[in-house]
Design a protein around this nucleic acid. Structure first.
Lengths: 242, 242
DNA sequence: TCTGCATTTTTCCTCATACTAATTATGCCG
DNA sequence: CGGCATAATTAGTATGAGGAAAAATGCAGA
C-alpha cells in the first residue's frame, strides 16, 4: 500500500506497478477521507463499480475488504457497503493518514496530528531515557554525527535525523508507542517536506538534538521529556505550524 | 470484525454468524499475533489452505487482504505471503488488539498498553478542559450521577463510567486522540473485566472522577491532567496492574 | 386507510475455474 | 563455473453461477 519511504526494514521490494485491488482501495480511500462520500453513504455495488471501472468484482471486493479492515466502511448484504461514522475510522493507520494527506489535509487534521506529536514524542523520550542500553546510545550518537556532518539540506542529513528519532522510539521498548509515533512522524515528515523548500533553514537544529541525546544518555527521564518538547516546539515553529 | 461492545453508534446489527473470510482472518490473526507464525514465515499458499480448510480461494484471499491492511503480512507473487516484521504491525488496530488479547496477552503487551494509557488519557483530559462546551459538561455530569447511583458492580454503573471517559475524549475535539484512546481503553476494559470479580471493590471511585470532572468543568487544563493521572494510577493499582 | 404477512428483489457472500503475470528455480550451453 | 534462456510456481485477475439475508413490494384483511 501507499507507504512513504521510511526505514530500510524488510522492505517489500518495489512491485513496479500496484495491484488492481490496491489501486481501487487507494482511489476509494481518498474519496472517502476526502469527503466525496459521507458517513452513511453507500458505495457503488459490486456489479456496477466493476462494470463502470472495467475491473473484476474480485478486485473490487478485495479493495472493500481493505477499507473495511481500516474501519472506513461496513458491508451488509442487501443494504450495501456504507461509510462508517468517523469515530470508527482508524485515523492512525498509515494508509488512512496518507490518503488524508493526499486528499488535501484540513487544518483540523494537521492540528490533531501535531497535538498528538506533542503528547507522544516527549513521552517516548522519557521512556527511552529509562530503558536505553549502550548500543542504543552509540547508534544515536552516530546518527547525530551524520546529521551534524551533512546538515538538513541533504538527503543524508535528513535520513540521519529520521534515524535518530526512530532510535529513540525503539529504545522505549514499547511497541505500541513505536507504532503510534511512526504514524505521527510520517505525517509530520510529509508536512515539512513541502514547507522546507520555501525558506532557508533559520535555526541550527543541533543544539536541541544534542540536549535530548544527552538527557537520554544520562538517563534523566524528565529532562529528556522537556528537551524533546522544546525540540518539537522549535521545529514546528520553523515549519510554520503552531 | 471482532469489535468489543462499545458505544451505540451506527451499530452494524448482529450478523448472526460471521462471514467466512472474517473467520479466517480471525484465525490467522490470532495465530500470527500469538506467535504461531513468526516474522519472515510464509503463510500456506492459497491452493493449499483452501483445500485443507475446505474454503474457497476467494475467501482465503479476502482474509489475507484484511491481514495485509493491518500490516501483519505482505504478499508477493511467487514468494508467497510472509509475516511482516512486528514494527509494521498496526498494534493500535482494534482487531489486532483483540487478537492479542485472545491469543493470551503477554505481560509486555499489557505493560505497553498501560503505559500508553498513562500518556494518553491525562493528555486527553487536558485538551478536554480547554475545549469542552456546556453540553459536554452536562452530559459528563449526568454520566457521573448515574455512576454514583448504580456503582461499578452493576452494568449500568460501568456503562456510565465508560460513557464519562468517552465524553472526555469527544470533548478534546481531536479525532486522532479519540481513536487512539478508544483502542487503549478497550484493552483496559478487557483486562479489568476479569480482575474485577476477584476481590471486592476496595476504593470508592467517585472522588477521583469528581475531581477530574470539576477540573474539566472549570477549564483548568493542568489540573485536569493531574487528576486524571491520579485516577488512572488508583484504578490500575486496584486492578492489580502497576 | 392501515396493518400484518407472504413474496419478490436486491445485494453482498461464497465457490469453482480458467487464465495472467511476476519471480524464483532449473538447466543448458559456452 | 557463469550466464542466460526456459520452465515451474504462486499470487493476481476475471467470469459465471448460485446462496443467504435483508429490504422493498404487494396483497389480504380489518
Amino acid at each position: 500500500m501507499t507507504q512513504p519511504d521510511d526505514h530500510p526494514l524488510s522492505r517489500p521490494a518495489n512491485p513496479g506497478q500496484r495491484a488492481v485491488h490496491d489501486r481501487i482501495a487507494h482511489d476509494l480511500g481518498i474519496a472517502i477521507v476526502g469527503g466525496r462520500y459521507l458517513p452513511g453513504d453507500i458505495l457503488p455495488g459490486e456489479e456496477r463499480y466493476s462494470a463502470e471501472q472495467g475491473v473484476s468484482r474480485t478486485a473490487y471486493r478485495e479493495a472493500v475488504r481493505v477499507l473495511s479492515a481500516k474501519g472506513l466502511v461496513y458491508s451488509r448484504t442487501k443494504s450495501g457497503t456504507r461509510i462508517n461514522d468517523r469515530l470508527r475510522w482508524n485515523m492512525l493507520d498509515l494508509d488512512v493518514l496518507a490518503w488524508m494527506f493526499e486528499a488535501g489535509p484540513t487544518p483540523e487534521f494537521l492540528r490533531d496530528i501535531f497535538e498528538l506529536r506533542i503528547v507522544v514524542e516527549p513521552a517516548a523520550a522519557q521512556f527511552a531515557a529509562l530503558r536505553r542500553d549502550g548500543q542504543d546510545i552509540s547508534r544515536m550518537g552516530h546518527a547525530l554525527e551524520e546529521m551534524r556532518r551533512f546538515g538538513l539540506q541533504t538527503v543524508e542529513g535528513r535520513a540521519a535525523d529520521q534515524s535518530f528519532h526512530r532510535l529513540i522510539l525503539l529504545a522505549t521498548r514499547n511497541e505500541s508507542l513505536t507504532t503510534l509515533a511512526t504514524s505521527v512522524t510520517a505525517v509530520v515528515a510529509w508536512t515539512t517536506r513541502f514547507a522546507r523548500d520555501d525558506r532557508q533553514e533559520l535555526r541550527d537544529p543541533m543544539p536541541d538534538h544534542d540536549a535530548v541525546f544527552e538527557a537520554i544518555m544520562r538517563g534523566e527521564a524528565e529532562e529528556a521529556r522537556l528537551k524533546m518538547l522544546a525540540l518539537i516546539r522549535n521545529a514546528s515553529a520553523d515549519a510554520g505550524m503552531l
